[in-house]
Design a protein around this nucleic acid. Structure first.
Length: 299
DNA sequence: GGAATAACCTGGATGC
DNA sequence: TGCATCCAGGTTATTC
């Protein structure tokens, strides 16, 4: 499932191919993939035709490509659970479930197809207006402009963003009367973390997923944040987590971080720290993996 | 206003 | 073999 490291791999892979490229044409094969596009802003294809793209930007799991010229707009993409953005030579047949195709021309790379492939249609693309970031800092990784798409403006900065407010995050947790994992998955508090990395960071910090967020000490919050950053950076260095064909980079290659997981997907296997079997429980309509010995619920 | 839950969505795995 | 059911989970709308 694409979380921050997987989306960052895609952003970095797209950058050299789309920055400065002109959009020659757009084909939409599945209109449900435009669920986040506001038709009142204009027709998706017409808004993109002939426009020149700038370098792609990422905040959390959201990716956007600013367009040159006025009014300031961007192509916004979210990969959902199964979305992929692939670079293809024109004429290449797409084996997956192709939803949207951009035909682009880059001054150096030449003509390319940018494919948005999405099996479950939880992901989407849209053209959205760029608005000032509330804190005045660059909108995300990949830009110096303090601008974000409208639909990303409510999303918190991710923990790898230099402008991430660690103090503000700790203060928000102290006010949260909810489970810590629910808080970690709340993209309005901290972005980029999904089910996999939430389980991994909680395991590393020795915190039970259902521990009330406002019961954590400041020191424990610092530890948790450090582990969140560590697991995200490690996953990024290994190219992201791939369990199957649902996550690949822009060239279609898988990442290797699945081999480094300590808790997620390892129910029944020995905890790498103490040997106690990892347990999987239902939480928020998804699986939570934890070590019942290392991660005890403290009331 | 904050927190919890349901709904969206489809291919693969499983059970009968 | 074929059909029905369950499962995965990010985001948002709805409900409490």
């Amino acid at each position: 499932m694409p979380e921050l490291p997987e989306v960052e791999v895609v952003r970095a892979g797209l950058a050299p191919a789309v920055t400065g490229a002109t959009i020659l044409g757009v084909e939409v094969f599945e209109h449900r993939s435009l669920r986040r596009h506001d038709p009142l802003a204009g027709d998706f294809e017409a808004l993109l035709d002939g426009r020149v793209m700038q370098g792609p930007v990422r905040r959390g799991k959201f990716l956007w490509i600013p367009l040159e010229g006025a009014p300031r707009r961007a192509i916004v993409a979210h990969l959902g659970m199964s979305g992929q953005i692939l670079l293809r030579e024109p004429g290449t047949a797409e084996a997956g479930l192709l939803r949207i195709r951009l035909h682009i021309a880059h001054p150096v790379q030449g003509e390319l197809w940018v494919h948005f492939v999405d099996q479950r249609i939880f992901g989407s693309m849209a053209v959205d207006a760029l608005v000032p970031a509330l804190d005045g800092a660059p909108g995300g990784l990949g830009t110096d402009e303090p601008l974000v798409p409208t639909q990303v403006s409510h999303i918190a900065r991710d923990p790898l963003d230099p402008a991430f407010d660690a103090g503000g995050f700790a203060a928000a947790l102290a006010r949260k009367n909810t489970d810590i994992k629910r808080a970690l998955l709340d993209q309005r508090l901290i972005s980029g973390i999904g089910n996999i990395y939430a389980d991994e960071a909680l395991w590393a910090a020795r915190i039970h997923y259902a521990q009330p967020a406002n019961s954590l000490s400041r020191a424990k919050v610092r530890t948790l944040l450090a582990e969140v950053r560590h697991v995200l950076e490690k996953a990024l260095a290994e190219g992201g987590t791939s369990f199957d064909a649902q996550y690949v980079n822009v060239n279609g290659a898988s990442g290797y971080f699945a081999h480094s997981l300590n808790a997620y997907g390892r129910q029944g296997e020995a905890c790498p720290r103490c040997g106690t079997p990892i347990v999987r429980e239902q939480f928020m309509n998804r699986g939570s993996h934890f070590c019942p010995h290392c991660q005890r619920l403290r009331r």
